[in-house]
Design a protein around this nucleic acid. Structure first.
Lengths: 164, 164
DNA sequence: TACTAAGTTGTAATCATTACACATTAATTA
DNA sequence: TAATTAATGTGTAATGATTACAACTTAGTA
């Protein structure tokens, strides 16, 4: 469904899932399991499907994207379930909210260090590498920083070439 | 209405207006006037009031904040006018949209180089100085970047001290 | 098998934003 | 000044995303 250049293909879903569980959720797999148990989170069929969708469509989909596509495979799926699942996944830290635009909430499975660029012409959101963790400001010496987001906007190469 | 530490007081509004027109809107005052004329923008009473509100309440207000407060002075004011005015001011570049949270659009009169920090406890949005202009990524070599935003979240000093 | 809790579903409510038609004001011209 | 036209403002209705909630289903357990 999504033709983003970030699309990951030919990688087994279970492999990716394990990869997050181990790598993305610090500090350890056991810690994550404990965390999930503490919060009584079971990866039900629907929740797994949402997670799977996010790995296979790393184009920062909206709730509507996720729901519409998954609904084809799971006719009984409810949009409320998608919302609930995303909220839980965000709480646990497996998924990141992207609020680069004010009228659409998007979701990103990758929680590693990177920024987001939105093309004003085609709407595509690209990831770009940047050492965001090291960003800081002396003004925030007495603040506790939990989340850092960097959002750029402009025109992507594809759209720029159209105007030439 | 707003007790943000960024609050600017005792400064004449017209002075501030001129200050933007000259400083914030590059490259020159004449250019700005031409720009405004080209776009047929007159600073009507309502539009001036919205601008004035944004200078006197630099706490990144929502549309509802602006409307509710101005409505006390201008009983005939319509919320649609506030929306229209903000859209125009953003287009022209005098006002910046802050989408640090997904359920609320906020507006910032300061368009200079700075980041935004939102306290998850009290909801206050703080400005912090940072050289955002110099941020870059080799991944974006072929992109045209028009806007850069840096959003941090966490706990502010006031809220941190409450938990001690 | 009955019980309990967690998870899912569909509908209704909420809330921010936009669309739009009409009213008002400002600017322009005769 | 009066008439005309364009720009702004206003209020209501429509839209669309998100949340609240109650009923249903599933999974696990005694």
């Amino acid at each position: 469904m999504c033709n983003d250049y970030n699309l990951v293909t030919n990688i087994n879903f279970e492999y990716l899932l394990i990869a997050w569980l181990v790598n993305l959720m610090r500090p350890s797999f056991d810690e994550l399991k404990k965390e999930l148990n503490m919060r009584n989170i079971n990866l039900s069929y629907q929740r797994l499907k949402v997670l799977e969708y996010l790995t296979q469509n790393q184009c920062h989909p909206t709730v509507d994207h996720i729901f519409t596509d998954l609904h084809k495979d799971i006719p009984t799926l409810s949009k409320t379930t998608v919302y609930n699942t995303l909220r839980i996944l965000v709480e646990v830290g497996l998924v990141r909210v992207v609020t680069i635009e004010d009228n659409e909430t998007r979701y990103d499975i990758i929680t590693e260090n990177h920024g987001h660029f939105k093309c004003e012409s085609c709407g595509t959101i690209y990831n770009f590498s940047m050492d965001i963790d090291s960003l800081t400001s002396e003004d925030l010496d007495n603040f506790k920083i939990k989340d850092k987001d960097v959002y750029f906007k402009g025109l992507c190469p594809k759209c720029l070439s159209k105007y030439k």
